[in-house]
Design a protein around this nucleic acid. Structure first.
Length: 486
RNA sequence: UCCUCCUUAGCUCAGUUGGUUAGAGCAUCUGACUGUUAAUCAGAGGGUCGCAAGUUCAAGUCUUGCAGGGGGAGCCA
């Protein structure tokens, strides 16, 4: 088959260019064979929808094998030739089709392609190809993550994931933010966001040891102990102290033994950091940002959202629209405690000022009491990180958590402590060695500025936007405890 | 890491108080069919019942251990 620009199925399904020969390439979802022709559903990933190929055996045999014949019917030998040629066109195989776009004679689709030529790029043995034209369970698909992008569900999820990544960059770019690349390998273990993966090139059989038996990291690649980052925040703050508005968007690693539908060991996080923002500016940005992303999905991914709405979560689109049109409820931790204590609900965990809110408490506030996203602020200082801005009351800090229905905490952030003495005191109280964060303290020593920022878990955003229930189904190749396949 | 449930054909599942040769739908294969669309119709093949041990005349079924998975909790994004 001659080389020619292929048409995308997404474009053809909306096209009215009937009668023109064109070229499509893609993967076969199913083939329905009849005596003299077959229907092939072809998908190229440009849309969740497939296009129907009408494959007339007489036309194909004439074009592919016996172009000089003038007969208008197939003799038995020619019939067998074309049947055998099309035999390997099965679910999962990859083909190129040259044909004419026509209005469909049959019901169920408006356009289809009458095939003139079919070239088979790659077969998929039906006896061993794991995907069938029937739907599969998500748990089974996780075991074949290398093939699951070929399903309608993961096609939709991956396209939405792409659209959200693009929209994040667009939002920040349009609002004057600069994308800053913070390191993935870090020598700092003061990020305080959980257990870290070690990065080393030391010989695992005969590592250099110190007299006390610990590894001698001075002989390691970087000459010191290094880990995979758990957050780009501290470095993003350095950028904000020069460019004013910055954000990071990169992979993040947590070596926690978390086995839940909301946690990954490797995930992507977006962390804007803004000079001259206080906690209220921070909340305004967070709310505007996530609403923008949901509106972007509604505007740019209607087919995929409709598919997911129909197959997995028939309240999905309504929920997205609801978030976009709602005003997030903002209240302090102390107010939340009062509401919970006055609720009359019996919780498994007690509600006491000073203790962190449990998932059941957050769920009550978001899903029962307010019925919309909630932003909680001003948490007790003892349950929050060292860098959060301390309030004058001496008891609380200007942290904020954005809580969403179904998925819980989607954003965590704070106004940062910009006062050098206050920050240094907090570091000492929490036994963080000053020598590990001297560069961070320098931002407060030289031209310090009030500033704020937050972290958005990308996969949790995708969970909410797609209506998927398990975070392992919104990232192509999930890394979780005991699972790093593919 | 804790609690709890699950593991039977390629997939989704049924399998009674322990009792002959372990079933269904879909998928696959063979055939039929002039417009199908989760096509339909007829027929066929397909099983170490997660692994290991134990109880019993007899275990898919009961017990214990291990592995893998789901849900909930904690940690957090």
């Amino acid at each position: 088959m001659e080389h020619r620009r292929r048409s995308k199925i997404a474009d053809l399904l909306k096209s009215k260019d009937f009668g023109i020969e064109l070229l499509v390439k893609g993967w076969v979802r199913t083939k329905r064979e009849k005596k003299n022709f077959a229907f092939i559903e072809l998908n190229d990933g440009s849309t969740v929808k497939s296009i129907q190929i009408f494959a007339d055996y007489f036309v194909l045999e004439k074009n592919l094998f016996s172009q000089n014949t003038l007969d208008n019917s197939l003799d038995p030998e020619s019939y067998n030739t074309i049947i055998n040629y099309l035999k390997p066109v099965t679910t999962g195989s990859c083909i190129a089709v040259k044909g004419i776009l026509v209005e469909s004679v049959g019901q169920g689709q408006s356009v289809e392609i009458r095939a003139n030529h079919i070239e088979i790029y790659g077969t998929a043995d039906p006896e061993s190809y794991p995907l069938q034209k029937k739907g599969h369970g998500l748990e089974f698909l996780r075991e074949i993550a290398h093939l699951r992008p070929r399903t309608n569900t993961f096609g939709a999820v991956l396209r939405i994931r792409h659209a959200m990544a693009f929209a994040i960059h667009k939002y920040f770019n349009d609002n004057g933010f600069y994308y800053i690349h913070t390191p993935i390998i870090t020598g700092s273990d003061a990020e305080g966001a959980g257990a870290m993966f070690r990065v080393t090139t030391l010989d695992d059989r005969n590592p250099p040891l110190l007299p006390d038996g610990h590894l001698d990291y001075t002989q390691d690649f970087f000459g010191k102990e290094t880990k995979l980052t758990v957050s780009g925040q501290l470095e993003a703050e350095l950028g904000a102290m020069a460019l004013s508005l910055v954000y990071t968007f990169g992979p993040t690693f947590r070596a926690e033994n978390s086995n839940t539908p909301r946690h990954l060991a490797e995930f992507w996080m977006i962390e804007p950091e803004m000079a001259f923002y206080d906690i209220n500016d921070n909340m305004d940005l967070a709310e505007d940002f996530v609403k923008y992303l949901m509106q972007y999905a509604l505007d740019h991914c209607p087919d995929d959202l409709e598919f997911l709405n129909k197959m997995y979560d028939n309240e999905l689109i309504d929920r997205l629209k609801g978030v976009v049109s709602s005003r997030f409820k903002r209240l302090t931790y102390t107010q939340a405690i009062e509401i919970l204590q006055a609720s009359g609900q019996t919780f498994e965990f007690p509600v006491d000022w000073g203790a962190d809110l449990q998932a059941e408490h957050e769920r009550y506030l978001v899903e029962k009491h307010f019925g919309k996203p909630v932003i909680l602020t001003d948490y007790p200082r003892d349950i929050k990180a060292f860098y959060m801005k301390q309030n004058p009351d001496g008891k609380t800090v200007r942290g904020m958590d954005v809580l969403f229905p179904k998925i819980g905490e989607i954003i965590g952030g704070s106004q940062r402590e910009e006062n050098l003495d206050a920050l240094r005191n907090r570091i000492h109280e929490m036994n963080i060695p000053e020598k590990d964060v001297w560069w961070y303290l320098d931002t407060r020593k030289f031209g310090t500025a009030p500033h704020a920022g937050f972290g958005l878990g990308f996969e949790r955003l995708i969970l909410f936007v797609t209506g998927m229930a398990n975070i392992r189904d919104v990232i192509p190749f999930p890394r979780t405890p005991k699972n790093a396949e593919f």
